[in-house]
Design a binder for these strands. Structure first.
Lengths: 200, 200
DNA sequence: TCCAATGTGGACCGATCGGTCAAGTATTCG
DNA sequence: CGAATACTTGACCGATCGGTCCACATTGGA
């Protein structure tokens, strides 16, 4: 009962894009509303605050990306190829954003996590949660790789965290240098970390 | 001629601390002035804009830290120990900030670089420059390590970038998890990356 | 059909934002 | 001493901030 609307989705979309390409602090509620084609009254009908919108945005984006991740890390894909696909995925995203926007945007979760980490505990915790989910995919791939002796046995969770850190750091470097191609070293770097000799 | 003052230094100090522990956007000019015990008029006597202050702050901080870096990476220190000292340095800073402030603050340059990377080119370029300087220290240590065959010959610059990325990523993870001890894996991760078997 | 629930429009709020300005005070040099 | 310079003071500006409010439009279920 009551009327229906897709304003909430439009707000989630607009907010994520604007915050990703700018920053949480630099994007105003008015701006988000304008881009979403929604009035301020409606905004606060759906979300109690700007921070709540950001929170919802993150969960929403994750859910949207999840099928892609599940496919990438499918147990049917050879373990090391899963990692390669993941590297290609990240590189692809940063390339696309850089081309569309003229500027490497980096990882949206890192951006907000570092900006608001000391100010908004809920947002910080949400980013930590999303990080943990990413690492679970990596960890699972690493364990499968160990099972078939593609890499030596070891602390899969710890390794996953290292690989994840590597990717975050390279994305920061790429953003600051405004060059998505810096992410090209991600895959070889991971192989180094895993002790796999490169092909060349 | 004319009167003298240390207001500029106080502004640089206050600004760096406030921006590091919060974020660029969340800290106002008024707030910086209050913490520095300086009036707004004086602020704009020394700096043309908030963004210029941030820029000056970064250069200032680097110059202050430089002797520490030069000592850490002195050619008289064995190459691999330089890297260990660097890891300990980063861990120490994050621990101190976390204890003093109740929250891991991460790398100040990453924080601002990711927040303003798409909005303020000068700031972005400055962060890129500081990153490059850090990598030069690492690169030099790696080359020295190669010279005495502590690690296999290879692309020192590329390896330095990977190590640097690893440290940035781990700092982001530590901030978001609010646990400085996550940086404990930095040293072992670097050894892994360099292909050095761990002691254990 | 009519009502209750749901979403919309947009004016409005006090606070704060980065930045300006002009008059005044201290200091150093000639 | 006097004038040029360097710094201080604090009131002030328009714009924008996140958030509130409420009359109104639209809808689905009974």
């Amino acid at each position: 009962m009551g009327r229906t609307s897709d304003a909430k989705e439009r707000l989630l979309d607009a907010a994520f894009d604007l915050i990703w390409t700018n920053s949480y602090g630099a994007v105003g509620v008015d701006q988000i509303c304008e881009q979403a084609g929604v009035n301020k009254g409606s905004f606060y009908h759906f979300f109690p605050s700007k921070s709540d919108l950001a929170l919802a945005t993150f969960e929403d984006q994750w859910n949207r990306r999840r099928p892609e991740f599940d496919a990438m890390f499918s147990p049917l894909v050879p373990p090391l190829e899963r990692l390669d696909r993941w590297c290609a995925f990240i590189l692809g995203i940063q390339r696309t954003m850089a081309r569309r926007f003229g500027q490497v945007c980096g990882c949206p979760f890192v951006n907000v996590g570092t900006e608001l980490g000391t100010q908004d505990v809920r947002l910080r915790d949400k980013v930590a949660e999303l990080f943990s989910r990413s690492q679970q995919y990596l960890e699972s791939a690493l364990r499968d790789a160990m099972a078939v002796a593609l890499i030596p046995e070891g602390d899969a969770a710890g390794l996953a965290r290292m690989i994840h850190a590597l990717s975050l750091g390279l994305q920061v470097q790429a953003k600051v240098a405004n060059d998505p191609e810096l992410l090209g070293v991600l895959a070889p770097a991971i192989r180094r970390l895993l002790g796999i000799p490169s092909d060349t």
